[in-house]
């Protein structure tokens, strides 16, 4: 089941390279703030497609039209994330304040326990965020559904908490591996160029700069968008795994 999700998501994200490049361009302009929400909005559309589709279906990548709706969807996703992440943050703050008023071993012990509890709640909150956004997408974008805790908990129960966590850990590992491997391959190619250039008597620093530029361009325009679509698609598909 989990491997099927990954396989589908890996193929799905590679369906249309032009859209990846468009996403990359949007990401490049995200310092203007509005494009940042377009990115999250686009990922929301990917999730929306996934929760309404079937695994290994023939869904195309979502279109880049109706930017205003995409923007509003992005704002919704960001609000959901912030609202959920506030809980671990506040708990951590409470522990920090209490520990700050104690002294010696009690203070550090309490801080340790606080950090552990925060970490666990953070993981749960992240799970709830992913599932909440999927649940919201499934219910035609009704905002309140992102915070319908009992329904979301039921959904996670049906999929299985263990499966969910394993899927997300797998996602993190795949993301890290793909980005590392791509960077390493480009690095190797340019190292080979640099060495052969140096042997032939050229200055290798220019090749080094070119390598860094190409590397960041590929990360920005191809690998980054690919991985973000991959992650959204996977978590959307995971939501459809409930019986």
């Amino acid at each position: 089941m989990i491997l099927d999700i990954y396989k589908d998501a890996l193929e799905y994200s590679a369906k249309d390279w032009t859209k990846l490049v468009i996403l990359g361009v949007v990401c490049l302009f995200s310092f203007l703030l509005l494009p940042l929400f377009l990115l999250t909005g686009y990922n929301y559309r990917v999730i929306n497609n996934a929760v309404h589709g079937v695994i290994n279906g023939r869904d195309p990548l979502p279109e880049f039209n109706d930017l205003i709706e995409m923007f509003i969807d992005g704002v919704k996703v960001v609000i959901v994330q912030i609202a959920y992440l506030l809980i671990p943050f506040i708990i951590f703050l409470i522990f920090a304040v209490i520990a700050g008023n104690l002294s010696g071993a009690a203070s550090s012990a309490l801080m340790l326990i606080g950090a552990l509890i925060t970490f666990v709640i953070f993981i749960v909150a992240e799970l709830m965020i992913q599932m909440g956004i999927c649940h919201m997408a499934y219910n035609d974008g009704a905002f309140s559904k992102a915070f319908a805790f009992s329904e979301i908990k039921e959904a996670i129960d049906e999929i299985g908490w263990f499966e969910c966590i394993v899927t997300y850990v797998g996602l993190i590992i795949i993301t890290l591996v793909i980005s590392f491997v791509v960077t390493a391959i480009i690095g190797l190619i340019f190292t080979a160029f640099g060495i052969s250039g140096a042997v032939l008597g050229a200055d290798p620093s220019g090749i080094f700069v070119l390598g860094v530029l190409i590397n960041s361009a590929i990360t920005l325009f191809i690998v980054g968008p690919y991985l973000s679509i991959f992650n959204s698609r996977s978590s959307g598909l995971l939501y459809t795994m409930q019986i």
Binding site: I72, K76, N139, D140, G141, A142
Partner: peptide, 9 residues
């Protein structure tokens, strides 16, 4: 309207 946020859109 499916969601009230459609008003904002």
């Amino acid at each position: 309207m499916a969601s009230i946020t459609d008003c904002v859109v």
